[in-house]
């Protein structure tokens, strides 16, 4: 049997192919709740620099806990990807709809599934100089809390660097690490951990 990361690597080229050329498709309204809605206190969209007027409804097709096999133990290099989520009713078609980048344990590497997403955000920021984004870094609950603050900052900075590589300016990007202090999925299991190891782009 193939290990989890290898399975994902094999299918990632197919996913990147899907992303290209679909960016003008109107956003579909999936039945799943967007990740951001799980945290009632920080609903995005209220800011005057809201990106949603540019990019349509956020969050469609983003992570559900049901999309991660239950009861399975993952390798440390497992990361969640909405493109691999068999339970998702819709696959994200517009890269800018995706505002959450997921990571492997104790890692800040941006995986192939997310590279075009981050690039698309970077290009949008470059062509809209008044747009400001907060890049949050988050971790799962394992390990020590202050180390996770450091790890969350590293995740946010990795995303920031990739945004800037597309022409976004440093002044457009605010980074903050919440470590493990703001989980979107409660529970001490692999599913929750996978969803909590993330960086969120908040416009």
């Amino acid at each position: 049997m193939l290990s989890t990361p290898i399975r994902y690597l094999m299918s990632s080229s197919l996913v990147l192919g899907l992303l290209v050329g679909c960016s003008s498709t109107p956003p579909s309204t999936g039945s799943g709740a967007p990740v951001a809605a799980m945290d009632g206190s920080r609903q995005p969209g209220a800011s005057s620099h809201s990106a949603f007027e540019y990019f349509g409804t956020p969050g469609t097709g983003i992570a559900r806990e049901g999309g991660i096999p239950e009861g399975e133990e993952f390798d440390d290099d497992y990361y969640y990807s909405p493109y691999q989520d068999q339970s998702a009713s819709t696959t994200p078609t517009n890269a800018l709809e995706v505002r959450t980048i997921y990571f492997a344990f104790d890692s800040s590497e941006i995986h192939a599934d997310f590279i075009d997403i981050v690039r698309a955000h970077g290009m949008a920021l470059a062509s809209n100089p008044n747009l400001v984004v907060t890049v949050e870094g988050h971790c799962d609950e394992r390990g020590s809390r202050e180390y996770n603050i450091g790890l969350g900052e590293r995740r946010a900075n990795t995303v920031k660097r990739m945004l800037m590589a597309q022409g976004a300016r440093a002044q457009q990007i605010v980074t903050i690490s919440y470590g493990e202090e703001r989980p979107v999925a409660l529970g001490s299991n692999e599913q929750a951990w996978a969803l909590n190891r993330r960086s969120e782009l908040v416009y």
């Binding site: 020590s144 202050e146 180390y147 603050i149 450091g150 790890l151 590293r154």
Partner: peptide, 8 residues
Amino acid sequence: RHFAIDTE
């Protein structure tokens, strides 16, 4: 002064 995470 190191690029790694130094904390705690």
